[in-house]
Write a protein that binds this DNA or RNA. Structure first.
Length: 325
DNA sequence: CATCAGGGCCCTG
DNA sequence: CAGGGCCCTGAT
């Protein structure tokens, strides 16, 4: 099952994101549960990428500043199965997934002195909402996130990578790369259940089948208007109101909407915005809309991630109480 | 020991 | 449109 591939060759390229740009804030999201497909340290980020049926290893190095951004990107590949990777296509895809070309200058200058956003802005000015994942991969991640605690989510993801993913080595890292949905489409549900995913086995099967038979054209989904896109996403088994919200901002970079606040986030925003334990979600949504208008999703992302960066460095007792391991 | 909710969603009535 | 059920595990 667990095969390993040495990504023995690489190409090197430079990417110039639009300014301002936060390298660390965009590439590493401390609020996300850890997965064995990426690694991070200050100014340096490693990520596997399964693209066009090939495994890649990406190494991002911060070679610029917030106002003069520059990323050195190494794309590692397996020379025996691929002679010349399509670097341009890969770079375009990476730029989209990490939203490297988006313009946030209006937002960053407008809210530089905002009472709530100001401090986060000093640290993460130019941060984007991003994900390294394809839509299929994203649905897998959100599926193992549902109705459980973080420890189990991490374990489920580990089991799935271990059984269906590919261990790749590059740049002195060994990380797992995502599988083709066909892999899970071909396994039976009982085998999946043995990986402790519980009732989610059915969901994972149906999602894999969907992506195999429909070959979703992500490029065209990215062009859709939001309502059509939302309808399409909600038609995927296992995607409901919470996941569709995450998908719209993380995968498709809609920064101007937030319509749904799940209970645990409600508690966090209650603390951060109102200094209370529990505030009604409608009140929170109204407040966010009034303060940040068309940037409201990006705004709460700054607030949220800033909090989780803080948690990396020191303990935040009230937050720890909300994170159920 | 038993019960219950957890970083939702589907399905039923 | 409200509410029960879902695999499992740790908290209570």
């Amino acid at each position: 099952m667990d095969h390993e591939i040495n990504l023995d060759s690489f190409v090197r390229t430079e990417i110039m994101p639009s300014a301002p740009f936060s390298f660390d804030g965009t590439l590493h999201k401390p609020s996300h549960f850890p997965t064995p497909d990426n690694a991070y340290c200050d100014g340096h980020y490693w990520q596997t990428l399964f693209y066009e049926d090939h495994p890649y290893g990406l190494e991002f190095i911060n070679a610029g500043t917030t106002d003069a951004p520059r990323i050195t990107l190494m794309i590692y590949f397996h020379s025996a199965t691929e002679k010349t990777p399509d670097v341009q296509a890969l770079v375009d895809e990476i730029k989209y997934r990490f939203d490297l070309d988006s313009s946030t200058r209006e937002f960053t200058s407008r809210y530089a002195e905002d009472t709530i956003l100001g401090p986060a802005m000093k640290r993460w000015r130019g941060m984007r909402i991003s994900t390294a994942y394809s839509l299929y991969e994203f649905t897998v991640v959100t599926t193992v996130l549902q109705n459980t605690v973080v420890r189990r989510t991490v374990q489920m993801m580990q089991n799935l990578f271990h059984n269906y993913g590919t261990l790749v080595s590059f740049a002195d890292k060994k990380l797992y790369c995502f599988w083709n949905p066909r892999t899970i489409d071909h396994t039976d549900e009982m085998e999946l259940r043995a990986l402790k995913v519980g009732y989610r086995a059915k969901t994972l099967k149906r999602q894999a089948a969907f992506f195999v038979s429909n070959s979703v054209d992500l490029a065209s989904w990215r062009q859709l208007d939001r309502e059509t896109l939302r309808d399409n996403l909600l038609r995927i088994y296992g995607i409901g109101p919470a996941t569709v919200q995450y998908a719209l901002c993380e995968l498709f970079h809609h920064y101007d909407i937030i319509e749904h606040i799940p209970p645990w986030e409600q508690k966090i925003y209650s603390h951060l915005l109102f200094d209370k334990d529990q505030v009604d979600t409608d009140v929170i949504l109204d407040d966010i809309d009034r303060r940040y208008g068309k940037w409201k999703m990006l705004a709460v992302h700054y607030i949220f991630e800033d909090l989780f960066w803080l948690r990396k460095n020191e303990s935040v007792p009230w937050l720890e109480a909300l994170i159920r391991l």
